[in-house]
């Protein structure tokens, strides 16, 4: 792990992109986490680790604003997220467990809708991106005939189409093959190098430089 201050991208602005302070969440009378504090600066990749059921997915959905059953503060560039929700959402890309790929639509149609919700992109760009995530030849086939890994690649294409600064990725590696894992790791490093920030949950040992860790629950021995 590198020191945060060593990263040139963070030194220019002292205010972190995303920070959570004293976060507390309980579910069904069980405390998932309490007193959780973290910062995520530009150019940083933060991997959230923890055992099954330690609240990784919950934490991510809380940070995105999908879940409001928590206490504590979440700041976006030093200001509470709620005060600047629209801008925050425009700068956010969320990729959940459920990857958001409709099964009857083609990869092209899926991505076109995704882009239309945030920043419209020309069709030729989408086709190019589909090629670079290894889906050439499948642009016009329904997603239900694609394998789970290929569907995951459709969602990875969103990473190449977005201008969002903050990527929140929940278990994005699960169904990918080795090539896919490598591709995603590359995308994440590249994004960080360009001054973006990534929050990712995974049980993989990521091959990414400048990786920060956030451990939920009891640390594994």
């Amino acid at each position: 792990m590198n020191d945060i201050a060593a990263n040139p991208a963070t030194s220019e602005s002292a205010v972190p992109m995303l920070s959570g302070s004293d976060l507390y969440c309980e579910r069904d009378d069980r405390v998932l986490f309490q007193g959780l504090t973290f910062t995520l600066a530009e150019g940083q990749v933060l991997q959230v680790v923890g055992n099954n059921g330690s609240g990784k997915t919950t934490l991510l959905s809380i940070l995105c604003g999908l879940n409001d059953s928590f206490e504590g503060k979440i700041n976006w560039f030093g200001k509470p997220v709620n005060e600047n929700r629209e801008l925050f959402l425009a700068s956010l890309l969320y990729l959940g467990h459920r990857i958001g790929v409709n099964r009857v639509l083609t990869p092209l149609e899926n991505l076109r809708w995704n882009c239309a919700l945030t920043q419209p992109v020309h069709k030729s760009k989408i086709l190019k991106v589909l090629h670079s995530v290894g889906l050439s030849g499948f642009e016009y086939s329904q997603c239900c005939i694609l394998s789970a890994g290929q569907q995951q690649r459709v969602s990875l294409a969103r990473l190449l189409l977005t201008r969002a600064q903050l990527w929140v990725l929940d278990e994005p590696f699960t169904t990918l093959d080795t090539d896919g894992v490598e591709l995603l790791e590359q995308l994440i490093s590249q994004h960080a190098k360009q001054g973006g920030a990534v929050l990712v949950t995974s049980h993989h040992r990521l091959k990414i430089s400048n990786l920060q860790m956030l451990t939920l629950g009891k640390q594994r021995a």
Binding site: G96, I99, L117, T118
Partner: peptide, 17 residues
């Protein structure tokens, strides 16, 4: 239903509009 199951609904909730 299908949007809930495949996760598109979360994307819809998180779009800036």
């Amino acid at each position: 239903r299908s949007d809930f199951e495949d996760g598109s609904l979360a994307l819809l909730l998180l779009c800036p509009q």
